[in-house]
């Protein structure tokens, strides 16, 4: 009798707790998981020389293996490294990859890749497209952005692998790179 009266309250409390937990694990804080378990200076300096050193967690290990095996033609450019550096970076990327690393976001991103696929572009993964589905194609083409590969154009903390919503500021289309910004975080 008593139990029946308490039960609805209990269920309500449970669902509130569950929602809270869901929110806590939701988008903004979850991106903390993109920070690798360990640091690697060569990965940071070599990969970061031409573009943001992309989070290892955002591709599965097999993708990094494939990418590191083809540096002489890296998306149309020669990104060759000496064998020792290449091996060190490859091992690091594999260890911290979405399917081998410890982060939950990486696991989610890797799970969204079909087992037979080894995508070479993070921007081609289902996870990436889902996370950015509110961004119109014309926004990617703005002068200050250029392409979805240019993380740092909007994610101001990208160089430190901070992809939290708070650090997002989408540049306006002024035609002048780096000019005028709209802050999403200020909403």
């Amino acid at each position: 009798m008593k139990l029946r009266r308490i039960a609805p309250v209990f269920v309500l409390a449970l669902s509130v707790t569950a929602t809270g937990a869901l929110l806590a694990s939701g988008e903004p804080s979850e991106h903390g998981n993109l920070i690798p378990q360990s640091a690697n200076a060569k990965w940071k300096s070599e990969c970061g020389a031409c573009h943001v050193a992309y989070p290892p967690a955002l591709l599965p290990a097999r993708s990094w293996e494939k990418l590191m095996a083809g540096l002489a033609d890296h998306f149309g450019e020669d990104a060759s490294l000496d064998p020792a550096t290449a091996r060190e970076i490859r091992e690091y990327l594999v260890r911290e990859s979405g399917d081998r690393g410890a982060g939950r976001t990486g696991r989610k991103a890797a799970n969204a890749v079909a087992p037979a696929d080894a995508p070479m572009r993070i921007t081609a993964t289902r996870w990436f497209r889902h996370e950015h589905d509110e961004i119109a194609p014309a926004v990617w083409r703005r002068a200050a952005i250029g392409s979805p590969a240019n993380c740092g154009a909007c994610h101001k903390g990208a160089a430190d692998l901070d992809f939290s919503e708070r650090r997002v500021a989408i540049p306006r289309d002024t035609g002048r790179p780096g000019a005028g910004q709209v802050s999403l975080g200020a909403r």
Binding site: C50, H51, V52, F75, I145, N150, A153
Partner: peptide, 8 residues
């Protein structure tokens, strides 16, 4: 300069 493709 500015990398022609990545914009870095």
């Amino acid at each position: 300069g500015r990398h022609a493709r990545t914009g870095k």
